[in-house]
Amino acid sequence: MSIKQYIQDVFNAIKSLLKGMRVTGYYFFHPKEIITEQYPDNKATLKLADRFKGEVVMLHDENNEHACTGCTACELACPNGTIKIITQFDITPGGKKKKALNTFVYHLELCTMCNLCVEACPTGAIVMAQNFEHSVYDRKQLTKTLNKPGSKLRAGIE
């Protein structure tokens, strides 16, 4: 190691250490940067990050219609069997049999919020919601049916 290299090492070390200290020093003098949410106290004003994922929900519009065709792409995409889709056969006005959704069973207790089902969905029927207060007294309550009773497929979605 040459003398020049040695001195250069010392200066580079000091420079990089000061760089790190600048970051923490900035946070020290700018308490506004604090991102802690005081959760139970600020329930009303709680602001979660956009990418926060709490549970899978199915979108329903005002006519109680959803976009799920019962294709089971989400069920296949799920790595740990969280989703179980029960299908039925509807008779279309043309007299043909057509596969449709009967019940969308979602096991919240198995879900890891990996978002793979949402990405797999070809019609954008399911999304991730930000609700995270899932505690219940009985495990059975965590098995949910995502399509609302009486809902049907929105017209025009194949």
């Binding site: 923490t24 946070y27 020290f28 308490p31 940067e33 604090i34 991102i35 802690t36 005081q38």
Partner: peptide
């Protein structure tokens, strides 16, 4: 307290 503020905590 110092560690908290430097790590953007409370």
């Amino acid at each position: 307290k110092v560690s908290a503020v430097m790590q953007i905590r409370l």
